[in-house]
Amino acid sequence: MPGACRHSRQCTPGDPYASRDHLSSLTAGRSVRCERVDTDRYGRAVVRCSAGGIDLSCQMVRDGFAVQRYGRLDC
């Protein structure tokens, strides 16, 4: 969201509100399921989430509302 990108950091271009709304449309009326697939080097969980059989990360990238940043997506 605006103001969330720290100085000197390359942030994702685009409208964050449009991205949020698109994700909301992908999940509306569907059960969301998240599965832990890894742990990053800081000990945080890496999860893949889906709604209605749609991989949300892959769909957001395909639709132009997100970019692959830290790792490779296997879509």
Rank of each mutant, 00 (worst) to 15 (best):
S31M: 09
G71S: 14
G29Y: 12
D63R: 13
L26P: 02
H22I: 10
G3K: 03
M60S: 05
D15R: 08
G43M: 11
R72E: 12
G52A: 11
V67Q: 14
S8F: 14
Y42W: 15
V67E: 15
V37F: 09
M60I: 00
Y42S: 00
R44F: 09
R36C: 02
L26W: 03
G71I: 05
G3W: 06
T12S: 12
A18S: 10
C75E: 10
R20Y: 15
S8E: 15
S19C: 00
A45V: 09
G3Y: 08
F65I: 00
M1G: 09
M60V: 04
S19V: 00
R69M: 05
G64L: 07
R20H: 12
C58T: 07
P16K: 03
S57M: 08
S25G: 08
T39L: 06
G64E: 04
A66V: 01
C58E: 04
M1A: 07
Y17G: 08
Y70C: 03
T27P: 00
M60N: 04
D63C: 09
C11T: 06
G14W: 04
V46P: 01
R9Y: 13
R9D: 06
A51C: 11
V47H: 12
D21P: 01
R72F: 05
L23G: 02
R30D: 15
M60Q: 13
G53L: 08
C49T: 03
R30I: 11
M1Q: 05
D63G: 00
V67W: 12
A45D: 15
S31I: 13
R69L: 10
